[in-house]
Amino acid sequence: MIHVINPGLETTVQDTGRIGFYEVGMPPSGAMDKYSYTAGNLLVGNNESAASLEITYLGPELEFQEDTIIAVTGGEIPPKINGESVPMWEALEIKAGDKLSFDFVKQGARVYLAVAGGIDVPEIMNSRSTYTLCGIGGLNGGKLQVNDKLEVGNEKIRDVKPGTRIADHLIPSFDKHHEIRVVLGLCSYRLTEESKDRFFSIDWKVTPEANRVGYRFKGERLNFVEREQPFGAGSNPSNVVDLGYPIGSIQVPDGVEPIALLNDAVTGGGYATIATIISADLNKLGQVKTNETVRFVSVDIDEALAARNEVKEKLAEIKQNLSK
């Protein structure tokens, strides 16, 4: 059992997500940076889909009530055990009575705390992920609260020796300026050619409205091709007949501020979507902070699939190193 002394700013239970219910409007939720999340589970010997804690910006203070192995992966929110700094990306021994806390965030936005066995909360629609908007999943449907108690599960499938580390070249680092790759498409036909160019040629600043639901960016106005709005679409030129929104899709309500829809987003609506962030870079966006800047880079489907394979290969390498 893990006792929550202080929950941090937004600490939630997340796993690979609730896949297969998009049709009824249920977003997948799940870890925002799946690479770091998966690496954490591998480091503690868990199933790759075991639930972990996703910690945003400000870490919690937790007291462990049993001896176990943990790993902290992701952006850099430096962990401490009983006040002493301990490394990230490493299997760590923690004893009953030990307290885990965190320093201020240095880089990135989110870290994952993997615990051998995984966090045990009830599965809702095949997932333990928290979807706070509807109060589903996780611990009581929401972010952690003071005095919450977390049970440890039995998703551990192999032993990993404490001190085992992820090789340096497999540890991502995060800057304050980010390049995020997207595939242009969906309803991009609605944007003028000039606005499509501008979308890819300016730095977009991340606003404080940047969370698991979506990231809103400030930059400049984008313009839509003039047309008589089709029947059923609504009157604003950014409106279309309500349609499904892919995870990672970007829309520009009224042309004013682009919004990238993420794991807890609405699944559909009436705004033209213009591009989709590729799966490899959804991991990266999960580590982007408010006030940092993003440059969107256009890639084609083959480049998107190649980037996806690169992520898979890195995880395979981690797995191989750990089984040595």
Binding site: L186, Y189, P230, A233, V240, V241, G244, P246, I247
Partner: peptide, 20 residues
């Protein structure tokens, strides 16, 4: 109809711009 990639995990098909 428009057949569009939604990144590497989605395909979006717009059968018509108009509701009917």
């Amino acid at each position: 109809a428009r057949y569009e990639y939604g990144g590497d995990e989605f395909v979006f098909v717009e059968l018509s711009e108009t509701m009917d």
